[in-house]
Simulated assay, not measured.
Amino acid sequence: MTTLSRPDLSDIHRGDWVDRRLPTAWRPYTRLARLDRPVGIWLTLFPCWAALVQASRGVPDLGELALFTLGALLMRSAGSTINDIADRRFDGHVERTRFRPLASGQIGVPRALVFLAVQLALAASLLFFLTPYARLAAICVLPLVFVYPFCKRFTYWPQAVLGAAFNWGMLMAWAEVAGHIPVGAVLMWCGAVAWQIGYDTVYAYVDVKDDAQLGLKSTALLFGRHGRACIGLFYLLAVAAWSIGGWMQGMSLPYAMGMLVISAHLAWQTLRIDLGRPEVNFRLFLANILTGILLTGAAFIGTM
């Protein structure tokens, strides 16, 4: 009789390029910054790039593109470090996170705090290249970055806080390029938050059993068996906000075609969700990289 092996849901895989190519001393810091798991970086970058394209009415200035790309990388990495510090006592009991550096004892809190200080200092240095308005917008996101890791202790909506922080670069892009943040840009940001609530809930279903045992909260636990319908609703809200926001910004007809493609992709994702199969949900979470690519592409063709 053949038994099916349980899928490995750990987000750190021993023997990967970090273990093969980097010095031992560098490995825990690379994993703290999530450089070995860049999906979150891409999910942060694509909405930011889309906003830069819309604000620039076409191809963004290369200097601004480089600045926002580096800023998204540094702040996402710093946010990941903060999250691992805050969750170090929980991560060791969760299958997906049990091998993270702090949870597994590869690195201590003092060294992680020093690393975080370096990350934040590098991110702060980028502020000197921003306009005063964009600089103020950047500072305003810091409370969200620091409060997010603790949200799962007292609210079922940590995904909403994460979505607001993750996609803040969209507002900053308008502040930097245009000198103001129009209503259409705010709607685009709201759409990105709704999108992230959707895909991060898919991700949360991977941990739902462990989170319930640890007394943590998430939208996956809140939605329960109605998860597919709720995720589909947030995907619908995302497309609606992106469509109206794009229209308010004067996007051309090809942008609407891009929204139709995104709608079809998100509908396919929703139909594929299987609440009882974490490995399927994890692959669907990864599929949102394509959603980000499509959003950026739609913004570009919408300016033509």
Rank of each mutant, 00 (worst) to 15 (best):
F46M: 13
A160K: 03
A194I: 01
V94K: 05
R135N: 11
L294S: 05
T131F: 10
N281K: 03
D210F: 11
D11M: 11
A178I: 04
A173Q: 04
L113E: 13
K209S: 11
C140G: 05
D8F: 00
E64R: 13
L62D: 03
V206A: 08
L122Y: 10
A165W: 02
F234H: 14
S263N: 03
P110K: 01
S56K: 02
D211I: 06
G163S: 08
G227P: 02
Y156S: 14
W49F: 14
F234S: 04
L43H: 01
M75F: 02
R6C: 03
R6V: 14
L295G: 04
A112T: 08
V118W: 10
G163R: 10
G232Q: 09
C140F: 02
A137M: 14
P7T: 06
A112K: 03
A50S: 15
V202Q: 07
L253H: 06
T69N: 02
I262P: 05
A72L: 11
R37H: 13
G302N: 06
T30G: 00
L113Y: 05
V186K: 09
C140D: 06
M257Y: 11
R272M: 12
V208M: 13
L187T: 10
L221P: 07
R228V: 12
F146M: 06
S77P: 00
Q106V: 07
L144Q: 12
A137Q: 08
L237E: 05
L22T: 00
A137D: 01
G92F: 02
R76Y: 13
V39P: 00
I107H: 02
M248F: 14
I12F: 12
G179L: 05
R76T: 14
A165E: 09
G246W: 11
R57W: 08
M188A: 13
W157A: 15
D8Q: 12
A33P: 00
G198Q: 01
R27A: 14
L286F: 03
A112E: 07
L73Y: 10
Y29V: 14
A192V: 08
A78N: 07
A112S: 15
M170F: 03
Y203T: 09
L35H: 04
T219V: 03
W195Y: 03
L253N: 04
I139V: 15
G184Q: 03
F234C: 10
Q249I: 05
L67C: 08
A298S: 15
G71M: 05
A287S: 14
A241W: 05
K152P: 02
G108K: 06
